[in-house]
Computed example of a mutant assay.
Amino acid sequence: MEIRAGGLDHPDVVALLEEHFAEMLAASPPGTCHFLDLTKLAADTVHFFTAWKGETLLGCGAFQALSDDHGEIKSMRTTKAALRRGVAAALLSHIEREARAHGIRQLSLETGTGAPFEAAHGLYRRFGYGYCPPFGDYEATDFNVFMTRTLD
Results as ranks from 00 to 15, higher is better:
96 E>S: 05
51 A>S: 15
98 E>D: 12
84 R>G: 08
43 A>T: 09
63 F>H: 02
100 R>C: 09
79 T>G: 13
109 L>Y: 03
60 C>Q: 06
53 K>H: 14
66 L>I: 04
44 D>W: 00
104 I>L: 06
48 F>W: 08
51 A>E: 13
34 H>K: 02
74 K>T: 07
113 T>D: 12
60 C>M: 13
86 G>C: 08
121 H>V: 10
46 V>C: 10
68 D>V: 04
116 P>F: 00
123 L>R: 01
103 G>L: 00
97 R>E: 15
111 T>M: 09
67 S>Y: 04
112 G>C: 03
77 R>A: 10
112 G>D: 04
67 S>G: 12
54 G>E: 15
29 P>L: 00
35 F>R: 02
87 V>K: 07
94 H>K: 03
110 E>C: 09
32 T>K: 05
125 R>I: 11
70 H>T: 13
81 A>W: 07
115 A>E: 15
56 T>A: 15
56 T>D: 15
97 R>F: 09
84 R>M: 02
92 L>F: 02
74 K>L: 06
85 R>H: 14
58 L>C: 15
103 G>N: 03
29 P>F: 01
69 D>S: 14
40 K>I: 00
61 G>Y: 03
62 A>G: 10
109 L>V: 02
124 Y>C: 06
121 H>C: 06
55 E>H: 13
46 V>Q: 08
50 T>G: 15
83 L>P: 05
32 T>W: 03
115 A>K: 08
73 I>K: 03
110 E>L: 00
104 I>M: 12
81 A>Y: 06
121 H>A: 06
89 A>G: 14
96 E>D: 07
71 G>I: 02
80 K>V: 14
58 L>W: 11
73 I>R: 03
30 P>K: 01
70 H>S: 08
74 K>V: 04
50 T>K: 10
90 A>C: 10
45 T>K: 04
61 G>P: 13
42 A>Y: 04
114 G>R: 01
43 A>F: 03
47 H>A: 11
84 R>W: 05
85 R>K: 14
41 L>M: 10
44 D>E: 13
68 D>E: 14
33 C>W: 00
38 L>E: 06
52 W>N: 13
83 L>D: 10
96 E>Y: 07
65 A>P: 07
124 Y>P: 09
65 A>E: 12
81 A>S: 15
109 L>S: 03
48 F>V: 07
105 R>W: 01
93 S>R: 12
43 A>N: 11
122 G>A: 11
125 R>P: 08
38 L>A: 09
90 A>G: 13
47 H>E: 13
116 P>S: 02
60 C>L: 08
39 T>K: 07
34 H>E: 10
71 G>L: 00
64 Q>P: 11
125 R>T: 14
106 Q>Y: 04
73 I>V: 15
119 A>Y: 00
103 G>E: 03
45 T>P: 04
115 A>N: 06
99 A>V: 03
91 L>V: 05
100 R>Y: 01
47 H>C: 06
88 A>N: 09
68 D>H: 08
124 Y>W: 05
113 T>G: 15
57 L>Y: 11
100 R>L: 10
41 L>K: 01
50 T>V: 13
54 G>P: 14
116 P>A: 01
47 H>I: 01
